[in-house]
Deep mutational scan, measured.
Amino acid sequence: KRLCLVCGDIASGYHYGVASCEACKAFFKRTIQGNIEYSCPATNECEITKRRRKSCQACRFMKCLKVGMLKEGVRLD
C-alpha cells in the first residue's frame, strides 16, 4: 500500500502530483483555494504524522510543498 508523503497515512491515490491521503489532499486544496497563510508558533520544523498532522498547519502546508504538491494543480473555480 502506498503511504501519504505528507503524513504517512494510507494514500488514496496521487493528488496534485504526490501520493497522498484524502485529509492532506483536502487540506492542500482548502489552503490554496482560500489563499490561507499559516504561521508556525514554533520553529517551522514540527513533525507531521497522521496523529499530529492537525497540530501545525504551517508545517503541514510546508511539507505538502516540500514533497512536491503542485499549487498549479488546484482549480480556483
Rank of each mutant, 00 (worst) to 15 (best):
L76S: 10
K50N: 13
P41M: 08
D77R: 09
K25L: 15
A19G: 03
G68M: 01
I48C: 06
L70S: 13
R51I: 06
Q33R: 06
R53A: 12
Y16M: 07
K63G: 03
G13W: 02
A58K: 10
G68W: 01
L3F: 15
V18Q: 05
C4P: 00
E45T: 07
R51C: 01
P41K: 11
C21D: 04
R30A: 06
C21A: 00
S55Q: 15
L5V: 05
G73L: 12
C40G: 02
L3W: 04
D77S: 11
C7D: 03
V6P: 00
R60T: 13
Y14D: 14
R30D: 07
A26H: 14
G34T: 10
C46P: 01
M69Q: 01
I48E: 07
C40Q: 03
E72V: 04
L3D: 14
P41Q: 11
R60S: 06
I32R: 05
A19R: 06
C4N: 00
C64D: 00
V67H: 06
V67S: 10
R75T: 13
Q33V: 08
S20D: 07
K50Q: 14
Y16C: 07
R52Q: 14
F27R: 02
C56E: 03
T43P: 05
M69Y: 07
L5F: 09
L70H: 08
C7L: 00
R51E: 14
I10V: 15
E37P: 04
T31L: 01
C59M: 03
C4T: 01
G17T: 06
R2D: 14
R52D: 07
G13F: 06
K66I: 03
A26M: 09
A42C: 04
I48L: 07
Y16L: 06
R2T: 07
G8V: 00
T43I: 10
L65G: 03
P41Y: 12
R75I: 11
R2G: 08
K54C: 05
N44Q: 12
G68Q: 00
C40A: 00
C4S: 01
F61G: 03
A19C: 05
G17N: 05
S20L: 08
A23G: 15
K66H: 08
L5K: 09
E37C: 08
K29T: 15
D9A: 08
Y16Q: 05
Y38P: 03
K71N: 09
G73P: 12
Y14N: 11
Y14E: 14
V74Y: 06
I36P: 08
G34I: 06
I10E: 13
K25M: 15
A58P: 03
R53S: 09
G34L: 10
E45G: 12
G8D: 10
A23Y: 03
E22L: 07
